[in-house]
Amino acid sequence: MPTPSKGPRLGGGPAHERLLLAGLATSLFEHDRITTTEAKAKRLRPLAERLVTFAKRGDLHARRRVLTVVRDKSVVHRLFTEVAPDMAQREGGYTRIVKIGPRKGDNAPMAVIELVREPLSAKKATVKEAESATRRAAADKKKADEAKPAAAPAAEVEATEVDDATVTPAEVQDAPTQDAPVQDAEVDDAPAKATD
């Protein structure tokens, strides 16, 4: 029997849950911000974000995929033409959930879920650019290091990895020559070879 991965389903069954979530998604894309219970908001988030991803893609196929969930064509049009351009700079995190106090009546924990439509702040954009540049530089450097045959620091790193990992025969053969300056490594290797 399939078990729901995120706790019990909303509503009375799988179909009811689909309908509930579709209704919530429609309202969210229509009004940008809806107030609902915390559980529903949490379940809505992944669905809504996937639909926004489709909207960013923007082609007819994506539109038809979204229309299978959000049945209202005007809402889908709004999602594709107004919401999607605002999300162009964003890589995920299209919605924001903020908890508010419990509801009067049944004391259910409530939350506000809204589309994050404000543009990425200039500072954050700069930071992201810098980070990606650093990552690219690091990747280039690593590639260069790998290209250099038998680089000393690389060899040391390999030696330490050999200690941690399960010792394969090929590594054991390599290890003694590389480990020469490291006393501990040799001691560690000895029993491993004995067992092999």
């Binding site: 903020v98 106090g101 506000v112």
Partner: peptide
């Protein structure tokens, strides 16, 4: 105010205002 929640008296959470969170004395 409860932690990790929009403030019930002023509706602010992490520099953003949420009018839905505000509660009057009678509602609280």
């Amino acid at each position: 105010t409860p932690p990790h929640q929009a403030c019930p008296s002023c509706g602010m959470y992490k520099g953003r205002h949420f009018a839905e969170a505000e509660r009057t004395e009678h509602q609280a």
